[in-house]
Simulated assay, not measured.
Amino acid sequence: MLTIENLQAGYGETPVLFDIGFAIGTGEVVTLLGRNGMGKTTTIRALMGLVRPTGGTLVFDGRALTGLPSYRIAQLGLGLVPEGRQVFPTLTVRENLVATAAARFGERWTLDRVYAFFPRLAERRGHLGSQLSGGEQQMLAIGRALMTNPKLLILDEATEGLAPLIRAEIWACLKRLRGEGQAILLVDKHLDAMTKLADRHVVLEKGHVVWSGSSAALAADPTVRQRWLQV
């Protein structure tokens, strides 16, 4: 579904990514791992057209993404749940959900289905985005991305700043999505939860891919955590 080869990108004259490469198959869950500042968010921003790559290739469903504006990339089937949630604060829950809704690839996700998936959003459908708790905002950000009916769902810091009970709820929702065959690219700091959910992991270090493999391979090699993931 997604192939990234030798991706290079940065900000101004400051390079951040040097040779990022990995792939995601249909229905796969893949994580980007690494300490803060290693290039995970920049990789996502380059993929979504928010940062212009300076080299390499990005191909999604046979279509080159490099040079396309962000809205065209989204229309091809990539749904982003950004770091910090970024819900529309002055729109209601319902308005947030329908603002970018699309049924390009079959209307799997509708307003009613998102409400059923996140009952808390149904209860607060008339509340403004600014009136929601952090956990509710994250549910709304996920629901908003699902309303685009994406082929690939991308979550940057999926459970950042959330209370343990809300984190568990988000992980349960992602597990359900995986069970339905939703392809997911995931960034988060909670490694144990990700290893239970994901098929494969890609470890970044200073803009390079330094390791990739399955959850079983990651568990069997403690040096990966010690060398590249522990603070």
Rank of each mutant, 00 (worst) to 15 (best):
M38V: 15
G39F: 00
G39V: 00
K40D: 00
T41C: 02
T41M: 01
T42D: 00
T43V: 11
T43G: 07
L47D: 00
M48S: 08
G49Q: 01
L50H: 10
L50Q: 12
L50F: 13
R52H: 15
R52E: 10
R52Q: 12
G56N: 01
T57I: 06
L58Y: 03
L58H: 03
D61Y: 08
R63H: 13
A64D: 15
L65D: 02
G67D: 07
P69R: 04
S70G: 13
S70R: 08
Y71Q: 05
R72Q: 15
I73A: 01
I73Q: 01
Q75I: 04
G77R: 12
L78W: 03
L80D: 00
E83W: 05
E83Q: 15
R85A: 05
Q86G: 09
F88E: 05
F88K: 06
F88R: 04
P89F: 14
P89Q: 07
P89T: 03
L91C: 09
L91D: 04
T92L: 03
V93P: 10
R94C: 11
N96G: 10
L97R: 04
L97D: 07
L97G: 10
V98N: 02
V98C: 08
A99T: 14
T100I: 13
A101L: 08
A102N: 06
A102L: 10
A102P: 09
F105C: 10
G106K: 06
G106H: 07
E107K: 14
L111C: 07
D112H: 10
Y115S: 01
A116Q: 14
F117G: 01
F117H: 11
F117A: 06
F117C: 02
R120K: 10
E123A: 14
E123R: 13
E123M: 07
E123D: 14
R124H: 12
R124D: 07
R124F: 12
R124G: 10
R125S: 14
R125E: 13
G126E: 15
H127M: 12
H127L: 13
L128G: 02
G129N: 07
G129S: 10
S130W: 06
Q131F: 05
Q131N: 15
L132I: 13
G134S: 11
G134P: 12
G134H: 11
G135P: 05
L140D: 03
I142V: 15
G143S: 10
A145S: 12
L146M: 06
L146Y: 03
M147P: 03
M147Y: 08
T148M: 14
P150D: 02
P150I: 07
K151P: 07
L153Y: 07
L153R: 02
I154E: 03
I154V: 14
D156I: 00
D156T: 02
T159G: 10
T159Q: 08
L162T: 01
A163P: 09
